[in-house]
Amino acid sequence: MPKMRRSLLGYLPEESPIFSLHPVTKVLFLLVVSAYPMLTQLPEANLAGSLFMLALFKAAKVDLSVIKGYKMAFVNLFFVIAIAYTFFGGYRPEYTVLLRLGPIRVCWENLRWAILVYLQLVLAILVIIFFLSTMRERDVVVGLRTLRLPFVVCYLAGLSLRSIGLSIIDFFTIREAEKARALDLAELPFSEKVKKFGLYIVPLVGLAIRRAEEVSNALDSRAFRFSGLFKGGKRTDYIPKKYKIRGADVALIAIMFAFLAAIVFVNYQYGWLRAENSLLYRVRFG
């Protein structure tokens, strides 16, 4: 198993070719590539996209056990979507009823939509996981700053990352503190779990409020101003300047956008990526 490094967002490989890319490339990857499945209904295309993502994980030396951590989420997601479409997908006389549970009709047409939507989401989620497992925290801020977003937005993004990190640590301590008071969530049934979960919010928010005072003092004491300006000039962008956008970045960004354009073009000009072209639509029952 390759050595992994813990990061706030997940686990990072120690070494990866992805690290040599500019953060802005990675941020754009998240924004652009996660749009692909949203524009593509064809399940085969999304499945192919997912397989491509897995190959990308491999190439970036991200341990696939990272994805295994999300296994239950993937399984649950499918059931949630399938159930939602069964209940709210509606019914028409021409639908094929696979199963009847009292008043509930499980129809193939609804299930098919569930599969389509599910595969779209799987690809999108894989893109997000990939982003989280190749992105160091500072990359987020550098990426946003390079995109010329207002300074306040970038800085708040960075500060929230930092506070999420602190809150995660708090969360584990609070959980232990609950156990020490004879409450173990793991021993409770699901409904109780949800109810008790609210209890975490009290100390989490309390700790955050107490910390806020110190954080704002620390910001002020280092001459921080929300405007990003100070008397007589603009704040320096030192960290982003350390990163260089290179040929590989330009090429990759170009490819991402070109592919996006291709998807839009192919879809609206020829309709190749529409759901009806799927093999699933050839499946007939009885």
Binding site: L8, R136, E137, R138, V141, G158, L159, L161, R162, G165, V215, A218, L219, R222, A223, F224, R225, F230, R235, T236, D237, Y238, I239
Partner: peptide, 15 residues
């Protein structure tokens, strides 16, 4: 305040 040592040290200087 930041996610790396470098950002932390540089923060006031950028400001």
């Amino acid at each position: 305040l930041s996610m790396t040592v470098e950002e932390e040290v540089v923060f006031g200087l950028e400001n």
